[in-house]
Design a protein around this nucleic acid. Structure first.
Lengths: 195, 195
DNA sequence: AAATAAAAATGAACTAGTTTAGGAAATAGG
DNA sequence: CCTATTTCCTAAACTAGTTCATTTTTATTT
């Protein structure tokens, strides 16, 4: 239970849970430790969990036909990550989700998620809210890609997600922002460095 | 009530509602008729409704700094449309949502949505499910843009959303698929026409 | 049915960002 | 502390898709 507190506190930000409900919820959760470079989701395999990051960093990406990587999401402490469409439809994933550091997760298995939504209907509200936020986040990201140039997107990301920018490799950042690592390098060197 | 049946049936696909609940739900809904070229959402104004299309066609798009249009979504009969992030955070919209034909909508006002989620908690599940689907849809769209070429995306869309493709102008389709109308025209004429 | 406006097609010049291939610098592991 | 691997930088050639200006076709209005 001790170790599961972070995620229970997280959920409690959105719905009020009694102590009993918290205990019940805890039975649906499990701690997972992964090493750097380890995958928690891989294309072709059904994504079985929703994962909350207690410690560490992850990125979700896919590889296109030409072998190019496209990063779709990052997650550090207090974020969630998974292949969403694989998880909800229980169909083979398209994404890799890879640990960028040695990390600790709290995971909820798909079947358990269905069970706890039935047994603790309050949690429907939690799921609804975080899904709405994820959707709004995605929409905003999409819009940013339309309205801004490569350089603006870079600046925006650096100021908004400083913590993430510091922890992920540049090739991952470039492939998140939608351009090549070479071009990221060009942007960086175009700036008047303060170091 | 009669006129509101389509959306009540839609919701009933996801959650079982008693007749009383259906009647209660109906009090939260309203019919809106709009003419071609009319906007139901505009940048700068808070998006107040979630809209279900009974009849007609819509597109959601934004205009970037260079004046270029980017279409984010289409909606025809039995689809929902709105500026999602504006709606859930009740902040000014970034999108235009425009009627492509004379149309009929069933709308749910934001405040009413909050009320009915509290008064009929069953509907949390409905909201959760359709939000999850919207998110999965968005993710798939994003992935398709990475893994396919302009031409493949065009083919994919034509076969998957034939009904929509027939009803929306080509400039709208091009700006949805992520290239210029001139390029769409080029793709079309590159194909061996069957007409 | 004519007049007007909107949408679609064409082709040539253009450009943002990619690709490729090299080497330098930094990190991690033993 | 030394070696290997990963990450980062540079520069030139390249290309998918854009832009612009003009024409043809298709809708819409009177």
């Amino acid at each position: 239970m001790e170790e599961l507190l972070p995620v229970i506190d997280y959920i409690s930000r959105y719905v009020d849970l009694t102590d009993d409900e918290k205990k019940h919820l805890a039975t649906f959760l499990k701690i997972t430790r992964v090493k750097k470079r380890q995958f928690i989701v891989q294309p072709g395999f059904v994504c079985k969990h929703k994962s909350y990051v207690v410690k560490g960093a992850f990125r979700g990406y896919l590889i296109d036909k030409q072998g190019k990587e496209h990063t779709l999401s990052f997650a550090i402490e207090d974020w969630w990550i998974s292949d969403y469409s694989s998880l909800i439809y229980q169909e083979p994933a398209t994404l890799f989700v890879e640990a960028l550091e040695d990390s600790v997760l709290i995971q909820i298995e798909y079947e358990n998620m269905q069970r706890f939504l039935e047994e603790i209907p309050k949690l429907e509200k939690f799921e609804r809210i975080i899904t709405q936020r994820a959707l709004a986040f995605q929409q905003k990201r999409l819009l940013a890609n339309f309205t801004s140039t490569a350089e603006e997107r870079y600046d925006e990301f650096m100021s908004k997600y400083t913590a993430i920018a510091k922890r992920v490799p540049q090739y991952a950042l470039a492939s998140y922002l939608g351009f090549s690592k070479e071009y990221l390098s060009k942007i960086r060197n175009g700036k008047t460095s303060k170091s």
